[in-house]
């Protein structure tokens, strides 16, 4: 058990599992160490954290942090989720900062970092200056986590830090917030609004994360902060069109009624989700294409590939 290793957090989830498997099969990676989402908060026997133990024992040089989750309804209470998202990220980065081996950190963030508002541009680039302050619990988690990542990148300029802002994931087997929404018998929408939505096929998410993990180290010397990249299927779909293509029926509901609903089955209608259902969120992905040479499947095609089959009853 010698040589450099990659640590994948959140490997107990579908995306994490897929990425860990892909990295294991990659000859450029000597060893893959996986941490479950809860490991981030778990102390080991001798007073060290479980993560510290993993980082030291396996001399991990690349950390891929996927354990920032969106869905409150599936993973227990909101407080638990926040604990994992924010405190988990903070502790992971604190351990990375102490580790002499870590050379690269890749963090899975989310498009939610841009919020969703009428006051902001229709298409977000990595440099967009937001006019509205994003709101909502999950969005705040994402912004807090990104804040810690920036702080870490400043304190350890020798470590290559990449923040990937992923669009909502869809995939044939993946259980994601979006797949649960489109599995509802009728899809609630906000009356009078038809937001533009954008998706990322989970295969593309794995490709991009894989590339971010194993690509050659950049040769530039001093860095000022993390590289931020939007990751999404180019283009957008109006929600109404997506619902029709998925063979579902839209149920327009006045916004106050949806606000009172909060959750429907396993789909949550928190404030950020409601903003999203009104104004949508679309990212520009040119920087990703330029930097990695990967362009994900366009949103429209990705959606058809995953949900198109439902058209026939």
């Amino acid at each position: 058990m010698t040589g450099p290793a990659v640590l994948v957090t959140g490997a107990d989830r579908y995306l994490g599992g897929r990425l860990a498997a892909r990295l294991t099969a990659d000859a450029r990676v000597a060893r893959v160490v996986t941490a479950a989402t809860d490991d981030l908060l778990r102390p080991a026997g001798d007073g060290r954290s479980k993560i510290a133990e993993m980082l030291a024992d396996d001399q991990v040089c690349t950390v891929v942090h996927l354990a920032i989750g969106a869905s409150a309804s599936r993973t227990g209470s909101r407080a638990e989720l926040k604990e994992r998202n924010v405190i988990g990220t903070m502790r992971l980065l604190a351990e990375c900062q102490r580790s002499p081996h870590v050379r690269r950190v890749v963090v899975k963030s989310a498009a939610a970092a841009y919020g969703a508002s009428i006051r902001d541009p229709a298409i977000f680039t990595e440099d967009t200056e937001l006019r509205a302050v994003p709101r909502g619990d999950y969005t705040k988690d994402v912004l807090d986590a990104e804040g810690y990542v920036r702080g870490f990148a400043r304190r350890r300029p020798d470590v290559e830090v990449t923040t990937l802002r992923l669009a909502p994931l869809i995939g044939p087997k993946a259980d994601t917030a979006m797949s649960r929404y489109f599995a509802l018998p009728v899809a609630p929408t906000v009356l009078g609004f038809d937001p533009r939505v954008q998706f990322l096929h989970i295969d593309d998410a794995v490709d991009v994360l894989h590339h971010a993990t194993v690509r050659e180290h950049a040769t530039t010397g001093h860095r000022h902060g993390p590289d931020v990249l939007n990751v999404a299927g180019p283009g957008a779909l109006p929600l109404s069109m997506a619902i029709r293509r998925a063979g579902r029926t839209a149920l327009p509901v006045p916004e106050p009624a949806l606000r009172a609903l909060v959750t429907l089955g396993s789909v949550d209608f928190s404030r950020d989700q409601l903003d999203f259902l009104r104004y949508g969120r679309v990212m520009d992905v040119r920087r990703l294409s330029d930097a990695y040479g990967i362009t994900p499947l366009p949103t429209s095609e990705a959606f058809d590939a995953v949900f198109g089959g439902r058209k026939d009853p």
Binding site: R196, P234, A236, L237, P238, M241, A242, R244, R245, G280
Partner: peptide, 10 residues
């Protein structure tokens, strides 16, 4: 059927 095109601005 949702079989039409929109651009990124909607």
């Amino acid at each position: 059927a949702g079989d039409y095109e929109v651009d990124e601005f909607g």
